[in-house]
Amino acid sequence: MEKRSRSFYILAVFFALFVLFLYGPVLTIGVLSFQGPQGGLTFPMNGVSLHWFRDLFQEQAVGDIWGSFRRSFALGMMVMVTTVVVSVLGGLAFRKRFKGSGLLFYMAIASLVIPSILVSLGVGLIFNQLGLPVHWASSGYGSQLTWTLPFGLLIMFAVFNRFDKSYEEAARDLGATSWQTIAHVVLPIIAPSLLGVALFGFTLSYDEFARTLLTSGSYNTLPLEIFGMTTNVTTPVIFALGTLTTFFSLCVIGLFFLAVWVSSRRKDKSSDAGKGMV
């Protein structure tokens, strides 16, 4: 093996610093959330305790944290399922030529680049003028989809660009209907990527702020609740909440990676189909 060049070591140090930059601050608030009861928002640590976490689980003086968590979780699940289904359908549609495909593609890209406060404002105005109440499960849900669906669609493009069409041809040659081909051949092959779409759908919704700001109505989602806390909470309880919700996000991410790993292992083991071809 070739000897490592000097640039490797320089860049490796740079990379390490970058990772430290990414994770350092969050680790800091992780540590600070274990402040003693007298501790403040910065170092030094004034003792070590679970005081601020206990605070979170008690009756709150500062809003409705657990209610907003439940809403964010439910909304995340709704957005996740919708994103997976709609993106797969969209991805399948884009494999064929159809009139208006260019327009739909540009709409999806526009959805990514249009400032999110515009979506928030516009959806809020429409509901307002139609006399409908804004609610996280209606207007909030729709607004968040404009952020998650384009990501889902782009992932599906990447998946189908790498998809080997001969599997489908083989299925068709063996007499499968187009529905059977999709259900028994295409979907199982792309399943691990669908987990990726699901991960985007859930986490982007769970953390979304700007698009839900004017569309969630009187019941806050968790990011809105946390942002509200930043203006009137001056104790480490906000760090405890930040640590807890970040920990929750990391668990969700870990769960998805585990699922991807399990599904790819099962695929390796379960069948020897195609092995002869390699």
Binding site: L89, G90, S101, L104, I126, T146
Partner: peptide, 23 residues
């Protein structure tokens, strides 16, 4: 293809294009 693309078009028209027009 249209049927498959319809849900996405529906969401984007309702929650992206319409709001922009409204603004």
């Amino acid at each position: 293809a249209w049927l498959q693309a319809a849900p996405m078009a529906f969401v984007l028209l309702g929650f992206l294009v319409a709001p922009i027009i409204m603004i």
